[in-house]
């Protein structure tokens, strides 16, 4: 754990149950400001559920979730978002009937009130920024295409761009490289390395080479609990992790 940075997000003893099944069972996690944390673990370990509880999609049965020293437990999704948390979903989740440009406009959410938006027209100064974002993710040629017409990889990029437009302090990424080519994965890694420091990131990922490329600290979840935390080398050497997840081949063999 990086002790020198102030803790940004703290999960204490979080329990989530679905009809008696404990998806997350006493999870503890502390993420420092500006840290890029990778969350790995076998299927059903509760990684996505952990992200769901942070962003408010699922309410924990017990435990505390603190962000910047404030409790998120009682807040609704939009309030959590306003507090500075953004989320990318496992299944790319964009507005398929809107164009790429409109998607970005919606994601640019500095003003969230109804009336503040009812008198807001056209493009203004924010348009330039959004066009730059589209360029960053290689969608500058598709600005006027409806998002439903994009390929899977492009949709992934669009959702990443939406998060950048939203510009939250804490970004939760659920399998951002799923469906991407090797080159695209590398580009994502570059992007994440640039975001690190300015934003706090929690990335759920299965692609181990990607995790090793971006992650300083890796958290391993297993059966709803935190099994181990540490650098890639530490995790690789951890006997429990090997048994639960990685297999005898080590981190690269997974």
């Amino acid at each position: 754990m990086s002790g020198d940075t102030s803790s940004h997000l703290v999960l204490t003893d979080v329990v989530v149950t679905f009809n008696g099944f404990q998806a997350v069972n006493g999870l503890h996690m502390t993420v420092g400001k500006g840290e890029l944390r990778c969350l790995i673990g076998p299927n059903g370990a509760g990684k996505t559920t952990a992200l769901d509880t942070i962003c408010g999609q699922t309410k924990p049965a017990s435990g505390k979730i603190m962000f910047k020293g404030k409790s998120l437990n009682k807040l609704e999704e939009h309030q959590i978002s306003r507090a500075g948390i953004g989320r990318k979903f496992q299944v790319p989740s964009v507005f398929r009937e809107l164009t790429v440009r409109e998607n970005l406009q919606v994601a640019y959410c500095k003003h969230t009130g109804v009336l503040a938006n009812a008198f807001r027209f056209g493009r203004g100064q924010e348009a330039d920024g959004l066009e730059k974002l589209a360029e960053l993710v290689g969608l500058q040629g598709q600005l006027n295409t409806s998002a439903g017409h994009l390929s899977h990889g492009q949709t992934q990029w669009l959702e990443i761009a939406l998060l950048l437009a939203q510009d939250p302090e804490l970004i939760l990424m659920d399998e951002p490289t799923a469906g991407m080519t090797v080159q695209e994965t590398r580009k994502t890694a570059d992007l994440f390395n640039r975001l690190k420091g300015r934003h706090t990131l929690i990335v759920v990922e299965h692609d181990m080479s990607f995790v090793k490329e971006i992650g300083e600290v890796i958290s391993v979840m297993h059966q709803g609990r935190m099994l181990a935390e540490g650098t890639a080398q530490q995790i690789e050497r951890n006997q429990e992790v090997r048994e639960a997840y990685l297999g005898s081949g080590g981190i690269t063999g997974a």
Partner: peptide, 15 residues
């Protein structure tokens, strides 16, 4: 229109 399309996604942008 975004709400019409994907109501749940809109919440996570703070609206």
């Amino acid at each position: 229109q975004a709400i019409r399309d994907q109501e749940n996604r809109v919440r996570y942008f703070g609206y």
